[in-house]
Amino acid sequence: MSAPTQSEAEIESRLTAIGRVADGIRRFFDGDIWYSFKSSRIAVVAGIVTLVIFLAALFAPIVAPSNPYDLATLNLLDAFTAPAWIEGGSSAFLLGTDDQGRDMLSAIIFGTRVSLIVGFASIIFAMLLGITLGLISGYVGGITDAVIMRIADVQLSFPAILIALLVDGVVRGLLPPNRHADIAVWVLIFSIGISNWVQFARTVRGSCMVERNKEYVQAARIIGIHPILIMLRHVLPNVMGPVSVIATIGLAVAVLTEATLSFLGVGMPPTQPSLGTLVNTGQNFLASGEWWIAVFPGFMLATLVLAVNLLGDWLRDALNPKLR
């Protein structure tokens, strides 16, 4: 890694808080990661696609032509309109409408938003749980490590769908039926998150065991820094590389799992449809010729997952010093 020579002014500028932020940004765009990103065409395309989808989902109320949840704007007469470029299509509904007369494009944008919210939330949950357990396991070692890792092994033998069905079943049994729709999103986040923490925990544990024997950690131990602080200040920042790779690929997996669950009917309810719910609704009409209701959400899902996955692959290569 070559370091550019710094002028006095640049070094001075680092002393102020704003200077430090600016310096951080400058370092990023000067750094190897950004260079590697720029020089990978796949990464740039995947990055742009991902960014467009994220922005569309984030600003869904502004971007989408209509609000698919606003029942007042729905007109059953518009139902089953074909996409705009097909005979019978209307320029008002670019990707056609569903059985309720909803604009598919708007439904997809809002559905992506729901999918991404669930995906992000569950992966953050998995990350927090996994990093915490992984750090404890790797740093403390011994019996604690053995117990946590055996739990992880057991966890791995239960697929996300099984856990989601289990949690969903339990929750449905405990709560009155009118509350089911409200808690659906939490059930999803919990069950997808709980089935993804193991990867984080294993990676963090491995990196942590490497880092904890490095001399900079020993130097911190000698001056009596509390183990928890050592983990947070010294070890954690140095294990974030692999974690970011897993989180990116994990996001794609989480979105896909959410779609699967929703498709199977244990995920998001039709009142707050995610991409999976939309595909599920649409597949009823596949046989009757209204293919667009299922295909467009499905295409969106595939694009999103593929783009995020490609980004994750690139990130893994970029952070792997052996391949650099």
């Binding site: 001399e215 900079y216 130097a219 010294h234 140095n238």
Partner: peptide
């Protein structure tokens, strides 16, 4: 410490 590359937190 011995290893000047491992003894400072990068």
């Amino acid at each position: 410490f011995q290893d000047p590359y491992a003894s400072l937190n990068p």
